[in-house]
Each structure stands twice: as structure tokens, then as C-alpha cells.
């Protein structure tokens, strides 16, 4: 059984092997899958985004830039911006709320660890729509919070919480929190304890140890979690509609509308392609940061 070393993996300078034909063979299923069900649909989507449509909304293949030109109308840009703000806010709160929990779970005994991890996921085995509707019963004017506040005479009139930006962010945080906790947990779980102890031995306080040692070591988990929360949150529409009442349209709703109401698939596809480009940029920026942060 090899002793765990205290060096970071890159410090050892181990080069990945050149791929042999066996490695290629093993990779083949993944490659075929990527080509058929990721690459091909993406190409179809890009082709659609340059096309036209007929009266019934069927795609008429052609080539023009009109759909992209329309995307840069100030209306859509401001909706884009709002969606980014909501998603960023939700991601940030998820890190704040999720990190200490993930850390505690990751430091528990193996049996407790698995138990707690499962407990994080269990609520998510009910439909997200039912969960979101349950929140309505908490937040609405005749809901739980308001009846408690009113009956205990803390407030004279009910608070209006449903159908506000607060409700949207709460809905997003509730639904994506596990996607933050899981990857941070994975990072914390493999955190080398002796590094942290060394920090204490060298006289670091808990805050210093946390910010200088624990956070940098668990950064891959935070990055992964941020991606897992931010990306779906930006394009989410069902939760934002249910909790926000639809008066704060998000880019996900706009895209959805092109397919389910406006009969304008090409424009929806164009907005979607732009959204994906934005994600790719985030992905590369975060990826680069992750790599440059490594040599501790």
C-alpha cells in the first residue's frame, strides 16, 4: 500500500502517457457518443440558427445572419444581463451556504459521510416542480411564514414574498445547492489533513488556515460546483416562472417561448448558440484559473 505523499501531483511532473491503440479502443465508445449525440446535434442547432421558418414554424434551411442580428437588440441584451445577475447571485449564495456544509460532511466519518451525502440528495428525488410548489405554500400571502408572522403579531400585514426577485433567487439556490455541495465534498474528502495541521503548527489561526490552505486546496471543487450551478441556473425557466411570476423574463424563458409559443425556432437557436458561447468563455476562463492556481 503506497504512502500518501504530501506533494501536489503536478509537482511530481508525471507526464500523461501517449495514447496506445488500446487506449483509443477504450475511448471509442465515448468518441462515438460524442460524435453522434453531441457534435451532430450541435451542428444541427447551428445550421438552424442561420435558417428561416415557414408559417407553421417548420425550419426552412437557408443562410442568413438575421437571427443573430436580432439577438443584439437592447431588449434581449438586458434580459441576458438580468439572467446573468440572477445566476451569479444564486451561485454566490450556493457557495456561501454550501461550503461549510460540504466541508462538515467531507470531514465526518466515512459512514456518516455517505449518510449525509445521501440526505443532501434525497429531497431531489421528488420532482423539482413539486418542490417548487411546496415553496409557494411557504412564501405566499396565505402561506406558512406569513401565517406564523401574523398570528404571533410580529407583523400587521402579510409580507409579499412570492413573485419577487427574492423568490427567484431562493428557488434557484434551493434547486442547485446539492450541485454545489457534491463537488466541494469530493474535494474536501480527499483534502490532505497533514497540510492543514502543518498550517496550525506553523502558527496559523483557523481563519488563516482556512483562507490560505483549505480554500486553495478545495478550489477545484468550488470551480466545478460554480459551473454546475451557474450554467443551468442561467438557462433555467420553469423555476423562475413559477417563483418570479413571469414578470422578470429570463433568457431561458425567451428561448423557451421561441419554441413553444412564437414558432420561431431559428431565433431560439441563435439565442441558444450565443448562450453556449458565453458558457464556453466562462469554462475556459475558470479552467485557466484552475490550472494557474495549482502550484501552491
Amino acid at each position: 500500500m503506497p504512502e500518501p505523499t504530501r506533494q501536489s501531483p503536478t509537482a511530481l511532473g508525471l507526464d500523461p502517457r501517449r495514447a496506445s491503440w488500446k487506449a483509443w479502443l477504450l475511448l471509442a465508445p465515448l468518441l462515438v457518443w460524442l460524435a453522434l449525440f453531441v457534435l451532430l446535434p450541435t451542428i444541427l442547432l447551428i445550421v438552424t440558427s442561420f435558417s428561416n421558418r415557414d408559417e407553421l414554424g417548420r425550419v426552412v434551411y437557408s443562410f442568413n445572419w438575421d437571427n443573430y442580428r436580432r439577438c443584439f437588440d437592447p431588449t434581449w441584451l438586458s434580459i441576458f444581463w438580468d439572467s446573468i445577475v440572477y445566476a451569479l447571485l444564486a451561485t454566490f449564495i450556493c457557495v456561501l451556504v454550501g461550503y461549510p456544509a460540504a466541508y462538515t460532511i467531507g470531514r465526518a466519518s466515512p459512514a456518516n459521510r455517505r449518510l449525509l451525502l445521501t440526505l443532501v440528495m434525497v429531497p431531489f428525488w421528488t420532482s423539482f416542480l413539486i418542490r417548487t410548489y411546496a415553496w409557494i405554500s411557504v412564501l405566499s400571502q396565505e402561506g406558512l411564514v406569513n401565517s406564523l408572522l401574523l398570528s404571533s403579531h410580529i407583523l400587521p400585514t402579510p409580507l409579499s414574498m412570492m413573485y419577487t426577485p427574492f423568490a427567484i433567487v431562493l428557488g434557484l439556490v434551493y434547486n442547485y445547492l446539492p450541485f454545489m455541495i457534491l463537488p466541494i465534498y469530493t474535494s474536501v474528502e480527499k483534502l490532505d489533513n497533514s497540510l492543514v495541521e502543518a498550517a496550525y503548527d506553523l502558527g496559523a489561526g483557523p481563519l488563516r488556515a482556512f483562507s490560505r490552505v483549505i480554500i486553495p486546496l478545495t478550489r477545484p471543487g468550488i470551480t466545478a460546483g460554480a459551473l454546475l450551478v451557474f450554467v443551468p441556473a442561467i438557462a433555467m425557466y420553469a423555476i423562475t416562472t413559477l417563483m418570479g411570476g413571469g414578470s422578470n423574463p429570463t433568457i431561458g424563458e425567451v428561448i423557451q417561448n421561441q419554441f413553444t409559443r412564437a414558432r420561431n425556432q431559428p431565433f431560439g437557436a441563435a439565442l441558444g448558440v450565443l448562450l453556449m458561447l458565453l458558457f464556453l468563455v466562462c469554462f475556459f476562463v475558470l479552467g485557466r484559473k484552475k490550472n494557474s492556481a495549482h502550484p501552491v
Binding site: 446535434p41 442547432l45 431561458g252 428561448i255 419554441f259 441558444g272 453556449m276 458558457f279 464556453l280
Partner: peptide
């Protein structure tokens, strides 16, 4: 992961 779900649904349907 980054493709909005609705776009993935539609493009897979076309496929």
C-alpha cells in the same frame, strides 16, 4: 452541460 435543455431536446428530436 452548457447547452440549454430545451435546445438539446429540440436538436436531439431533429436528430
Amino acid at each position: 452541460m452548457i447547452m440549454p435543455e430545451i435546445l438539446m431536446g429540440v436538436s436531439l428530436l431533429v436528430l
